[in-house]
Write a protein that binds this DNA or RNA. Structure first.
Lengths: 223, 223
DNA sequence: TGACATTAATAGCATTACTATCATTTATAA
DNA sequence: TTATAAATGATAGTAATGCTATTAATGTCA
């Protein structure tokens, strides 16, 4: 992969497009580092500004609040994952293999060098695991949803659902299975890292565990 | 059921036991109402105090912060669910029927009148669906976990896992399946309410949807 | 060069998340 | 009953957070 990647995130997410300026790109880059290090609850625009050597007010020109910033990062990830899935499925015809590939991608770190992105992939991955559900688990979800900002997630879900349906035409819950696969991928990774008693992880299969479980789950249901 | 129910929540969760005083019980009751109405992010001890006609300082005497209060409510729910499962499984011998009963309980509102509890069951249920994952999806999870406050969740998970294993002795991931069933029950209820495109819900099966999907998932995997 | 738009810097304010102090009420036990 | 401790209430205060407004500086292209 040797080209410039960029994803148009829904304009409703930001006040000023962070991809369109140096400062904007720095905000995203440093946010990923800082949210990873502090956790989303302790992350503030003030701390971000100090870290970057800029001011709070500058950050507020790009994002209404930190929730929107997180939504931007997660949207970006969803779009990126969507792209990667297309890319990786290109030469695969077998639907079982397609689904396996998707599950592998959802349960492993992002490929290191993809399209000259200098976001920290490891951090981004952990943020997705620990923080992504916080973008929709809010009181205002219905209001936020009206501006279509969750579209990338829905599209990703629909894409996986299409593979699920192609693999098993009779299966009645392709979309719910897909959203469950995505969410369970995150949860099982989080649990196996921090609350292993909620899983069947062993010291030996720590890195592969989520992938193994989700594969078993998906093909158990789909036959 | 005609008796007084009360669950000992781990002492590390609170500063003063809210079950042990009138004010304490009022704090929990009003918190459930207020968290439901405002969402956890907008909920503050100040607002709670005003609502109850007491002071912020009084609330702080019971809980270190609002995260601990949420953890108390969710722990209480886990313990209650654990109790209800025992109660409901009493006369069931068939493991398939046991698992069905558990899934039904996880995907439906709590029974209305149980043991003279005057917490709003509908609100408590919605809080569990929307807010419960926020108790562990925090940077300090490892630190918090040391004081065993997640034990009720782990015990609930282990209890379900035992039924799973009894139903299918060869199944390799009983605990992960159980935590997935719990989490997916919440997610699918949330999604079918607020982001239906992530599910296969129909206007007709709105109330039964999560139950149907999870049942299909569980028995699909377990045979 | 000058008009105009973008970005930065400063300041400020209301709310949040606590902590401390002291007076008052209520339960308890000598 | 009285003393004594424990729980609550009232008031205040501090530092951090979340956000807005205003002005200053910088670039840009007609």
């Amino acid at each position: 992969m040797d080209f410039k990647l960029s994803f148009k995130v829904n304009e409703a997410v930001y006040l000023r497009d962070p991809e369109a300026s140096e400062l904007g790109k720095l905000i995203i880059k440093h946010s990923i580092d800082l949210i990873y290090n502090l956790g989303f609850e302790s992350f503030t625009f003030k701390k971000l500004a100090v870290e970057m050597g800029t001011t709070e007010a500058s950050v507020y020109r790009y994002f209404e609040n930190k929730h929107r910033l997180l939504l931007y990062i997660i949207s970006w990830y969803w779009k990126y994952m969507d792209f990667l899935i297309d890319y990786q499925l290109q030469n695969i015809t077998d639907n079982k293999q397609k689904l396996k590939t998707i599950i592998k991608m959802l349960t492993h770190e992002l490929p290191i060098s993809a399209g000259g992105l200098d976001y920290n992939k490891k951090f981004l991955n952990q943020i997705v695991i620990s923080e992504s559900s916080k973008v929709y688990l809010v009181k205002e979800v219905t209001e936020i949803n009206k501006s279509e900002v969750f579209k990338p997630y829905k599209e990703l879900c629909a894409k996986i659902a299409a593979v699920v349906s192609a693999y098993n035409k009779k299966y009645a819950y392709p979309k719910s299975l897909s959203s469950t696969i995505i969410e369970a991928s995150h949860h099982q990774q989080f649990f196996s890292q921090h609350l292993p008693r909620l899983t069947d992880v062993t010291p030996k299969n720590k890195n592969e565990f989520a992938c193994l479980f989700i594969e078993n789950l998906a093909f158990g249901v789909l036959g």
